[in-house]
Design a protein around this nucleic acid. Structure first.
Length: 444
RNA sequence: UCCUCGGUGGCUCAAUCGGCAGAGCGGGUGACUGUUAAUCACUAGGUUGCAGGUUCAAGUCCUGCCCGAGGAGCCA
């Protein structure tokens, strides 16, 4: 079977090539569009072409007095997702979504697509996921990934404006940087290496060099989680700042979230419309966010008859129960040391607790931020490393940071995909990343 | 690893008490000058996940297995 490209040389028609998102600036002009057929409809002596070009979607109309005209015959060979270059006059059209249409004069077929596997109807995710490379062409997936792209920019914009410096951390890391249970192991020539599950330890070194830093990249967790909130590979942004205490870092976190939400709503309006996302609760969001302690959270859980035992970490259902008590995001603070990482600073008011915080998103979207003040005292950190059964030797460089000019410092991590899930209102995290890596999915 | 649900045409699903395997979409052919997942008519398309069993008769009941979904566990 062959799939010939009919026109490998795009003809020069002396029409300016524009993208769909800029059509509004060319009303009344004759322009060129290059894209793919999203759908066609016909009605006797009129043809409709819905064209998608990556920047947006627009309808083009083709008229002919003769229903058997060569132009129509050529048009009727077009199938869904065929690639096509079209020329025509841009005009305002209140009947069209987006308010703009093209009156098509001529077109050049680049390739006629064979029967497209994704149809204009509902499909199951198990059918679509192996077709993810094509699925991302559809409007809803396109809108989600556009929102993701905006969020990424807003993350960088906020942190840069706040004086945080992007300092990249490695993905290949040496053994036992932090527990070993959930790390992907790989080979680094003759040594074992692991895929990073957090840039944080390196961030702490970077913070001592640059003051305020962040890293933003993929993170890997080899856990057999099978829920709609978990990915095996996901993106995390982790700010870390020297001389920032626990309270100050929570302030950064809430302003960070407020900025991302408000700015993304502003810039991504059309995508929220495609997604039919009711953004009213997001628009109302304002800092400061309420803060409750871990112990307060358990009072709520008791009232709601959760069976999670005291001193344990919450389950996904517990997070929803707690966040349902609030309109917007809520901080849960001062988690017990025994359920948190070894490097978290103990709470001076409660020996069992740590200066840690989680931010729970509303509407059941769960934990989107986890952060803490870090231990800055050398002897205390050594003690915690031993208590957790780690080897002091593996943490030599990390301990150095507590030797040469140690200062109090804090940081947090935000899961990009969970943030996108909450903003877009989608049900499952796997749609918030172009190529999700889930427990049963490494293809495509 | 455990619990629950599911697997029928390319896709989404239906099939009553065990009694001729069906519809819509998509494909093909035709009609239609404003369609929005267009509509209408006609048409082709099936080893009911796999293996066994019960029965005159199994998509349907029984046993085992495979695959998928949701959840739990796990998860700074």
């Amino acid at each position: 079977m062959t799939f010939p490209v009919l026109s490998s040389i795009i003809p020069i028609m002396s029409r300016p090539w524009v993208t769909v998102d800029r059509l509004k600036d060319h009303i009344g002009e004759t322009v060129e569009l290059r894209g793919w057929v999203y759908n066609t409809r016909s009605s006797g002596k009129i043809r409709f072409l819905i064209l998608r070009d990556g920047s947006g979607i627009v309808q083009a109309i083709l008229y002919s007095a003769d229903k058997n005209s060569p132009l129509f015959q050529r048009f009727d060979t077009l199938t869904m997702e065929s690639s096509v270059v079209i020329w025509g006059k841009v005009k305002e059209e209140p009947r069209a979504p987006g308010g703009v249409e093209m009156e098509m004069e001529d077109f050049e077929i680049v390739q006629v697509s064979p029967e497209y596997p994704i149809q204009k109807k509902e499909h199951t995710t198990s059918f679509l996921m192996p077709l993810r490379h094509l699925w991302i062409r559809s409007q809803k997936q396109y809108a989600i990934l556009k929102v993701r792209e905006i969020v990424v920019w807003k993350v960088r914009e906020f942190l840069r404006n706040e004086g945080f410096l992007l300092v990249d951390t490695p993905i290949l890391t040496p053994s036992s940087c932090e527990g070993t249970t959930s790390l992907f192991q790989t080979q680094y020539f003759d040594e074992k290496a692991y895929l990073s599950q957090s840039g944080q330890l390196y961030n702490e070194a970077n913070a001592m060099a640059f003051g305020k830093v962040y890293c933003f990249g993929p993170t890997f967790r080899a856990e057999k989680s099978k829920t709609r909130r978990h990915l095996i590979e996901f993106w995390m942004v982790e700010p870390e700042a020297a001389y920032y205490n626990f309270e100050e870092m929570m302030g950064v976190a809430e302003r960070f979230i407020e900025y991302i939400v408000q700015e993304t709503l502003k810039e991504g309006k059309e995508y929220f419309q495609i997604l039919e996302r009711d953004t009213s609760s997001l628009e109302k969001l304002k800092t400061p966010f309420p803060r409750i302690t871990y112990k307060d959270a358990f009072k709520i859980l008791r009232e709601e008859n959760s069976e999670t035992p005291d001193g344990e970490d919450f389950g996904g259902t517990d997070e929803t129960v707690i966040s349902n008590r609030f309109d917007g995001p809520v901080f849960v603070t001062r988690f017990p040391a025994k359920i948190k990482a070894f490097y978290m600073q103990p709470d001076p008011e409660d020996a069992e607790a740590t200066l840690s915080f989680d931010l729970l998103a509303p509407e059941g979207y769960g934990e989107i931020i986890g952060g803490s003040e870090r231990i800055h005292d050398y002897d205390l950190l050594v003690k915690k490393i031993h208590e957790h059964g780690y080897s002091e030797d593996d943490y030599r460089w990390y301990l150095d940071l507590r030797k040469y000019g140690s200062v109090p410092h804090s940081g947090f991590g935000m899961g990009l995909e969970r943030m996108v899930c909450w903003l877009t209102g989608i049900h499952h995290i796997r749609e918030a990343i172009p190529y999700p890596r889930t427990l049963n999915n490494l293809y495509p």
